[in-house]
Amino acid sequence: MASETNFINQLICDNQRDEAFKKLLDLYQERLYWHIRKLVITHENADDVLQNTFIRIYKSLPNFSQKSALYTWMHKIAYNESLRFLEQNKNKYHISIDDVNKKYLDNLMEDTFFEGNELQVKLQRTLSELPERQRQIFNMKYYDDLKFREISEILDIKEGTLKTSYYNTVKHIENNILNIENFSDKEVN
């Protein structure tokens, strides 16, 4: 934790800021990209949001109060930037926070950097059927490997609620995938 404090001090200090920021990019760029990508779906959008996120992080660093961990704070910025992007571009990309579920799979299929096989498409379809908040919780826990405490800080939801939501989602996905696989097996037989 002392190292994190030192690192944050470097990020705030004018002389060391640029070097520390390069290190910050090395550490978090990829993780934040994947977090953003699952929210805005296409690579092109994720690229835009990632850049905006890091520019905002750079600007906001002097105001970082250190109430939460650096990683959680950055994740929250990335999450908010993604939501802002979706809101701003709802007319352009035909997706918004509200109808992201309806368009989720369509936009994913249009993305040139999506090459899902049958099972991956099935998983994506199952995820797209989930309520938006439930899908975000699942993604953050399963794919971004965030702790419930961290997700709770980002989404401002109680840990207990998050756990319940996550285990329900896992069960739902397992059932769906198994049903689909069983159905496929029956069809083959």
Partner: peptide, 20 residues
């Protein structure tokens, strides 16, 4: 592997220099 999401080659290196 699980979601079928890909990124262009050397994307993160290019993105890093662009952000910087």
């Amino acid at each position: 592997e699980e979601l079928g999401l890909h990124v262009p080659e050397d994307y993160f290196a290019k993105s890093k220099s662009e952000i910087l």
